[in-house]
Design a protein around this nucleic acid. Structure first.
Lengths: 191, 191
DNA sequence: CTCAGAATAGTCAATCTTGACTATTCAGGG
DNA sequence: CCCTGAATAGTCAAGATTGACTATTCTGAG
């Protein structure tokens, strides 16, 4: 996750105190990242040490002291650099689902199918949720693009799961995964 | 990442020494996970301490000593448990691409488009690579399913990128992201 | 036979990440 | 006026992850 980019970017748009940042990330950006509060504070401290953000204390009414974070010039430069990198790179994505899938033949097919049906229900629920969120945004806004992105991937997930479950109904694939992986190897180091 | 599940699962299929495991993960499972060697050894030590794997020293010819890891009964039980959980759950996936996307309007549209074209080229390259890998496997084998899964997601990524680039050509979306996110909020704490 | 580079087998310090915890303040019901 | 639950604002120790590094052995080219 490019947590640093996210923090710098949000602070570039608007100076904020820690809690505000955390809240924004937790509530509004929950589909984009799972950055947790302790990580956030850790990174803010690091950015401050690096001179990319400054922290200024303030207090409103009787509330406890709050530190407001603001981007510095170096911070802004760093933001631009990270943004460029992020936009150019084709990031690899990894799916936890694949790990379980690898060992599908290690439990009885009927049982596995039951679990996969549950997984599918979970994906469906997620799609409903995100579709509602997408609908609340203007097509063309930055938030819309990210939500749409997620929606597309979730739909892919659903389609793939359906395909998998269908295949499983026809025949249980019982194979040794290790052998099967090795078989696909290049035929004995010939560059 | 369910790294523990992966390690237990591989050891269930076949006892192995550390290097063998690392190699398998690096070379054959690179689309599934990015588990690195130091993490692997760390987790193996932890599993050993928990009595889920045993380590036995051996030596072949003049090679340095090697530790062969083998799953214990408790390890096997743990594997089954983790597998069940993994198969049932609909895991959330996060995409690094989204972070950069959020700040798309922070750099000139033409420049951004250039970067996104590069990203698209990267995705294309990845698709070619994985399509070749998929072709080397029997449809229906566990490895095939995971590769197919990746291929589908990459294709989704390509389609989405194309859509995004097309939209950008028509009009540059210049908006304040924070405002745009807030706007979509529930209208003032009403439950 | 020799040397370079790959394969083998890890370790270590530094960093990142998290679950659990601590406090204070405010708003609303009774 | 008091109490409760939510919001505010973080901290801390423990655990996970990684880039960089160390060493030895084997293999093939020349």
């Amino acid at each position: 996750m490019d947590h640093t980019l996210l923090i710098l970017g949000l602070l570039k748009l608007e100076e904020m105190h820690g809690y505000q940042l955390g809240d924004l990330i937790d509530k509004r950006l929950k589909y984009l990242t799972d950055l947790k509060k302790p990580t956030l504070y850790h990174l803010l401290a690091k950015l401050e040490a690096a001179g990319q953000v400054t922290k200024s204390v303030s207090r409103e009414g009787n509330r406890p002291e709050r530190y407001t974070y603001r981007l510095t010039k170096t911070g802004e430069a760093q933001f631009k650099e990270l943004l460029r990198q992020n936009l150019q790179a084709a990031h690899a994505a990894y799916f936890n689902d694949d790990i379980g899938l690898l060992f599908l033949s290690e439990i009885p097919a009927a049982e596995a199918r039951g679990y996969l049906e549950q997984k599918r229900a979970g994906v469906d629920a997620r799609i409903t949720e995100i579709a509602a969120a997408t609908a609340r945004h203007d097509a063309g806004s930055p938030a819309y693009y990210t939500l749409r992105h997620h929606e597309l991937h979730l739909e892919t997930e659903r389609a793939w799961l359906a395909e998998l479950i269908a295949h499983m109904k026809k025949r249980a694939a019982r194979q040794n995964i290790i052998a099967c992986l090795a078989e696909a190897d290049t035929p004995k180091r010939k560059k």
